[in-house]
Amino acid sequence: MGTAVRTNAAPAWHQRRVRIYDREAPLGYLLLVPTLLVLGIFLLYPFLFGIWLSLTDSELGNLGNFIGLDNFRFEWRNTDGVFYTAVVNTFLYTGITTVFKLSLGLVMALLLNQAFPFRRFVRAALLLPYIIPTVLSYEAWRWMFDPTFSVVNWLLVNTHLAAYPGPNWLGVPFNAMAALMIVNVWRGTPFYAIAFLAGMQVIPLDLYEAARVDGATRWQQFTSITLPMLQPVLLVVLLLSTILTFADFQGPFVLTNGAPYNSTQLLSIWAYQWGIPGGAISLGAAISLVLFPLLTFVVAGVLFLLRRPE
C-alpha cells in the first residue's frame, strides 16, 4: 500500500490538493465570522458613525442635526489656535520620542543580546515599564515631578546637576512637554528593545563568524549585518509604535492633561476634553477625526522611508 502511493505520489497529491483547497472557501469564511462581527459592530460602525457625528451638532446622549463642516470650521478658526498647538504637539511628541525610543531600544537590545550573569532577570526587569499599566506608572512619575516634593529635583540638586529648587517640571510649558516625552520614552523603549532582540536572535551566527574571519570590526558587523537584517522588524515596530504614540491618550491625560494653558495639548486629549467633560461630542469627534488622515499620512511616510531598496 505504501509503495503504491509512493509510485504515483505526484499526481495523487496534486489532485488531492486541488480538491482539498476547493473545499476550503466555506470554512475560511466561516472562521472569520466572529472576528468580522466584533470588528464590524464595535470598530467599523462607530468609525463611520463618528464621521457622521462630526457633521452634526450632537451632544452627549443626544443626536443632533446635520450642520455640514461647521465643527471643523469652529475647530480651525475659533479655538484660539489650540487646534494648531495640538497638531504641532502631536507631531513633535511622536517624532521626537520615536527617534529616542528607536536608538535607545537598539542599544538596549544590543546589550541584552550579550552574555552576562542574571540575563533573564535583567531582561524581565528592563521590560517592566512597557508592561506595567501606563496610568499607574504615570502616577508615579507625576509624584516624581511634584512641584514641591520632586524626588527627581532632589536627586538633581544633590548631585549638583541643577541649582535649588530645580526645574518646575509640570508647571512650565516647555518643561511639561519635555516631561511628557521623557516618560513616553521611558515607557516605550522596552518595546523596541524586545522586538529588536527577537530580530537579532534569528540572525544566523555564521554571518558574524564569516565577517570576523574577514577582519570586520564590531562596528562594521553592526552596520553591515545587524542593521540590514533588522529591517523587517524595524518596519513593523515603527508602524505600531508611531500609530500608538500618535493617538496616545492615557499617559498624557494623567501627567499633564493639556496643562499648563493648553501648551501640552494633544489631539487625543483635546477631543476628550470637548467631547466628554465639555459635552460637545460632535466637536470632539471632529477633532479626533483629524487624527485619521494625519495618521494615514504618517504611516505612509514610515512605509516610504523603510521601503526595500530595489
Binding site: 464595535f42 462607530p46 463618528g50 443626536l63 500608538l244 493617538a247 496616545d248 466628554i276 487624527l291
Partner: peptide, 12 residues
C-alpha cells in the same frame, strides 16, 4: 485607535 472611536462608541 480607541482615541478615534470612543466618542461614537458612547452612542453604541
Amino acid at each position: 485607535p480607541p482615541t478615534l472611536l470612543f466618542l461614537p462608541l458612547t452612542f453604541v
